[in-house]
Amino acid sequence: MPAPINPNDFPHRSPIYRIHQGLGANFTALDDQRAVVADYGDAGVEKAAVAQLALADLTLLARGGFKGKGCSEFVQQAGTYFPGFNNTALLMSKGGLIARLSNAEVMTVAPHIKAEADISALRDVWQARRDAGDQHIAYLAPRDLTHGCFSLSGEHAATMMAKICAVDLRDHVFGNLDVAQTLAACTSMVVIRCDIGKTLRLLLLFDIAQTEYFWGIIIDAMGEFSGKPVGTNAVI
């Protein structure tokens, strides 16, 4: 039986890896740099929780962003659609999200591990063109570093979010792949709806320095709905 994976053995760590350890998390290595929570013990229970109310820490998964002149052109030339409207998102081929925050800014997010390929591919294209001297392809925005990322899923997710956020995130109002740039629990936040199958799921992106604060807020808010923390395996 292989030794359990310790996130301390990897250089990149979620700001709340100690909380995960305290909850008895089982970690899985993404590469030699990162280990994320696979589950907290009972994967079956976590799968079921995802449909009710579940919180997963995706902070260590790949993200990125492009900002500035040439942003939309670059994205489209790279073979990806540029979302047609601000505050909407599109899915890339492997499940990565590209969310349009303004006319000249997008954020890319991997909502699950396999989708990381989309994020890195787009970044590689940018780097190659930049290295080739192309100055008109916007700038990298290090959203993997500036933002923490949680997945909040389940039928109670929107109702729970109503306790901390003024934006109406209910199913029939905030559609799949809609984006909201808002405040939740006095914290600036980007909310992207990215359903898991037919289950409503919200990706919450916030100041990475507030990851521990915000985890506590959501765990508290989930209490009345019996929400549970789940690992990344449950939100694929």
């Binding site: 700001p15 629990a185 320095a209 604060y213």
Partner: peptide
């Protein structure tokens, strides 16, 4: 009451090393 706190990546190391925490803005 929501009182956002910001923690540096080394926050818990400081506690382990005997650091005496003080609030500086949200940090």
């Amino acid at each position: 009451v929501f009182s956002p706190e910001r923690l540096t990546p080394m926050h818990h190391r400081h506690a382990e090393l005997g650091g005496h925490a003080m609030r500086v803005g949200a940090w």
